[in-house]
């Protein structure tokens, strides 16, 4: 499902974003002049070397941090604070270890009628394949299961946009592949806009409509690569290989090993 930039409506608009942190060693420039438009229903990956500012950009877009200059708007509205309509799946596990799977998934559903909450929570627990673990505490779950809880928690509030910061980074490679497949299934079914941070080239080509490649710190956008392949993707196809090689080239590691 390729979302061509012309037909879909702009959802997230990042314009002229700079970010520097005050550190003991003086100001640290992390992002310079980042401009990006993400369209409704699009799956965009942010790819770049470690420390280039991917998480920082996502935190700015999510309303957790302020840009030093520049703006982020969603549907024309400036982002100033976190919002339930746009939710995070964090790099480190953000689910609560003191609450059961059920209570974690129900986190964002306060203020809704009881039967509605029960129906929603059960639906998303089933969707991510955790039926039977409703009363279990995160301590007793595997890494992949914890990440599923976090995905279910995000989907349960029916957000328009989901921010994912290396959500599968801590998983083994097989689980990671399975999680990607499930994410794509859910993304198609639920029609979300997804911004997905990764430093894994394969992951980005497998998932994204477009891959935004960052330079080393201070991060700026080097190039946006259109993957333009339908799901399910043939990981052996020439187009897949071309996109991958282009990304390796941009990261400066093509034909270097």
């Amino acid at each position: 499902m390729t979302t061509s930039s012309e037909s879909a409506r702009p959802k997230v608009v990042i314009s002229g974003v700079d970010k520097s942190f005050d550190t003991r060693a003086g100001p640290l420039e992390v992002l310079t002049d980042v401009n990006l438009t993400v369209h409704e229903g699009e799956f965009v990956c942010l790819l770049g070397p470690s420390g280039c500012g991917k998480s920082t950009l996502l935190n700015i877009v999510g309303g957790f941090e302020r840009p030093t200059s520049g703006t982020v708007t969603i549907e024309g509205e400036a982002v100033t604070a976190p919002d339930k309509r746009r939710v995070f799946v964090f790099q480190e596990y953000g689910i609560f270890p003191w609450a059961s799977v059920w209570d974690n998934v129900a986190l964002g559903l306060g203020g809704q009628p009881r039967d509605k909450v029960i129906e929603t929570v059960q639906y998303y627990i089933d969707l991510v394949g955790l039926s039977g673990f409703e009363k279990t505490y995160p301590m007793e779950l595997s890494g992949g299961m914890k990440q599923r809880v976090e995905v279910a928690r995000a989907l349960a509030v029916d957000p328009d946009v989901i921010y994912m910061d290396e959500p599968f980074g801590a998983l083994d490679s097989l689980t990671r592949l399975q999680m990607r497949a499930e994410l794509i299934k859910i993304w198609k079914q639920e029609q979300k806009t997804i911004l997905f941070v990764t430093h894994d080239v394969d992951e980005s080509v497998q998932l994204a409509d477009r891959v935004v490649v960052f330079s080393e710190r201070p991060g700026r956008i080097k190039e946006v690569v259109e993957v333009g392949l339908e799901h399910p993707r043939d990981l052996g196809s020439p187009e897949y290989g071309v996109a991958k090689n282009r990304l390796y080239e941009l990261l400066g590691v093509l034909h270097t090993i």
């Binding site: 999510g62 957790f64 604070a81 976190p82 919002d83 339930k84 939710v87 995070f88 964090f90 480190e92 596990y93 953000g94 689910i95 609560f96 003191w98 609450a99 986190l107 964002g108 306060g110 928690r153 509030v157």
Partner: peptide, 29 residues
């Protein structure tokens, strides 16, 4: 308390007294 817990809570609209009851107290318990 890990920042990620407070951020998730805020992201999902949990604020004020609820934030204390559902996140700060259990995280510190």
């Amino acid at each position: 308390i890990s920042l990620v817990y407070v951020r998730s809570a805020r992201n999902f609209g949990v604020e004020g007294v609820e934030l204390f009851r559902r996140v700060v107290l259990p995280a510190a318990m």
